[in-house]
């Protein structure tokens, strides 16, 4: 067991009305697994992902990671966990336009190492860029890249700190079919190397590529599809 969620509930207060988004999620995420959550918009998929990333606090329930209880950690402690163990891929193409591809990739390292030239494993960055076919683009600006290349850059950026779990929110977002297939191929490849992946998508075809698929409906895990 890697991540354990016990009766996770999340509600939002909108004026006098309280909306229950997650109605008691119980789930174990094992190390090395590849899980996808599918469901309609507003089903609670992204809320669950945010809770796993520590960017949102559950209203009640317990969350464990490697037997450590995370539910009552401070913002600082959660930040350390994100720094070291969690990589996030966003749906939107998020990058810093004034930095080159290489600089964009190493940005997350600024928070854990000294970028004065020592203190972080440049070999690892180079290896990742090689694996994801980005070496030729290292001195380009993100705007010069295609959609697929940009997504690959974002994946490398999320892997550069050596996370244990990758949280992907609609990782193929607005990509065309060919680029979507490429991204899924990459995700499967890195999962085979032992990285745990939790993906949220509304695309069933994409979800089918994962080893376990859960359908989330109205804030509950309705079904284990695979």
């Amino acid at each position: 067991m890697f991540f354990r969620l016990i009766d996770i509930k999340k509600s939002y207060q909108g004026g006098s009305q309280k909306t229950l988004v997650l109605k008691g999620i119980n789930l174990d995420i094992n190390e090395g697994s590849f899980i996808s959550f599918v469901g309609a918009s507003g089903a609670g998929k992204s809320t669950l992902l945010l809770i796993l990333a520590g960017l949102l606090r559950p209203t009640s329930g317990e969350l464990y990671f490697d037997s450590k209880k995370l539910t009552r950690l401070s913002d600082k402690e959660w930040s350390f966990i994100r720094k070291q163990y969690i990589g996030i891929i966003f749906q939107k193409k998020i990058f810093i336009p004034h930095l080159k591809v290489y600089e964009n990739i190493i940005t997350p390292l600024s928070f854990i190492t000294d970028l004065s030239g020592r203190g972080f494993d440049d070999g690892r960055v180079e290896d990742l860029m090689e694996t994801f076919d980005l070496k030729a683009h290292r001195n380009k600006y993100p705007e010069e890249l295609s959609g697929g290349e940009l997504q690959r850059m974002m994946i490398v950026r999320s892997l550069v700190t050596g996370p244990k779990i990758l949280l992907a929110d609609e990782p193929t977002g607005d990509l065309d079919l060919e680029n979507s297939k490429e991204i899924i191929h990459i995700l499967k490849k890195i999962n085979k190397k032992g990285l745990t992946i939790v993906m949220v998508t509304h695309n069933k075809e994409l979800a089918l590529q994962a080893r376990n698929i859960y359908r989330i409906d109205k804030g509950e895990i309705a079904k284990l599809i695979k």
Partner: peptide, 16 residues
């Protein structure tokens, strides 16, 4: 803001 949001998601604390 997006840049700061990205830093936060990458593990920067609010204080940082």
């Amino acid at each position: 803001q997006v840049e700061f949001g990205l830093y936060r998601c990458s593990g920067a604390t609010r204080r940082e």
